[in-house]
Simulated scan of single mutants.
Amino acid sequence: MTDTRPGTRIIELPTPWLRDHMHEALTIYGLAMGYDAAVVAGRYGYAIQHTDRPGFRAVGAFVETGAGGDEPAEQLVGFGYGYLIEPGQWWHDQVRAALDRRTAKKWLPGAFEVCELHVHPEHQSRGLGRQLLHALVADLPHPAALLSTPDADTKAFRLYHADGFVDLARGYHFPGDPRPFAILGAQLPLHPTDPQPANS
């Protein structure tokens, strides 16, 4: 468990808990990514399937609500999860097609995909994104972590570069999303290039 500030904590999430609270997590995903309710609803089945993949790990950020009694005393405000990348997975095969052969051979085998990493917009710019990322990949038995993020000058993009991720491909279009994406990779453990906490 990592303490961030008073009333905030980041923990590894048991898979059954995340399954039971996936709608709550995906609401944060939709708000953070700017997706409408239909896109978020369509993501649910895939997200549940992801929890069965080899090497699955999830983390969550919680803040105290001040509630008591029958009301939750804390609220999920950010989450991340990932798993071992393997051929036949949709994201693996998309990324394999986007990379040249040498880059794919270097980065894909045995790597961990940071599939989702999102912080509720009302709780961004507090360092939660960085702490979620570090908690998610801490002590993993994998040589590298890979992810995709909208290819724009966003807080998330700057966070990943500051934490040692490098560009593997830029301007890639995944089916079903009109925005260009960047595909990034980092050797594990992470070696941040920016010693100051990132605003994320």
Rank of each mutant, 00 (worst) to 15 (best):
P109K: 08
A135K: 08
H123R: 13
A135M: 02
A145E: 00
K155W: 06
L168D: 10
K106E: 13
H142Y: 15
A156C: 04
H142R: 11
A162W: 09
G110I: 10
A162R: 15
L140H: 04
L128D: 01
F112R: 07
A169C: 06
R130G: 15
H120N: 06
E113A: 13
F112C: 12
H118F: 05
L159G: 11
L147I: 15
F112Q: 06
V119A: 01
P141Q: 10
L147N: 12
L140W: 06
P141Y: 12
V119H: 01
G127V: 00
A145K: 08
H123G: 01
L136W: 01
V119L: 01
L128R: 00
A135V: 05
K106F: 09
H142N: 14
L108N: 13
P121V: 07
A156I: 11
D167S: 15
F165I: 07
D167G: 12
A111E: 02
D163R: 09
L136A: 09
Q131W: 00
F157Q: 04
T154V: 10
G110E: 09
R130L: 01
V114Q: 07
L140F: 01
G129F: 03
P141D: 10
T149H: 02
L133A: 05
R158A: 12
K105D: 15
A169I: 08
G164W: 09
D139R: 14
V114A: 08
A162C: 13
L108C: 14
A162Y: 11
F165W: 09
D153A: 10
F157I: 07
T154E: 12
G129R: 05
H161R: 11
C115F: 12
L133P: 00
P109A: 07
V137H: 05
W107Q: 06
K106C: 08
H142T: 08
H120S: 08
P143S: 07
D151E: 12
F112S: 08
L128W: 02
G127R: 04
L147W: 14
D151S: 13
P141W: 13
H120D: 13
F112Y: 14
V137W: 03
H142F: 10
A145R: 14
A169P: 03
A138R: 15
A111Y: 04
L132S: 00
H118E: 09
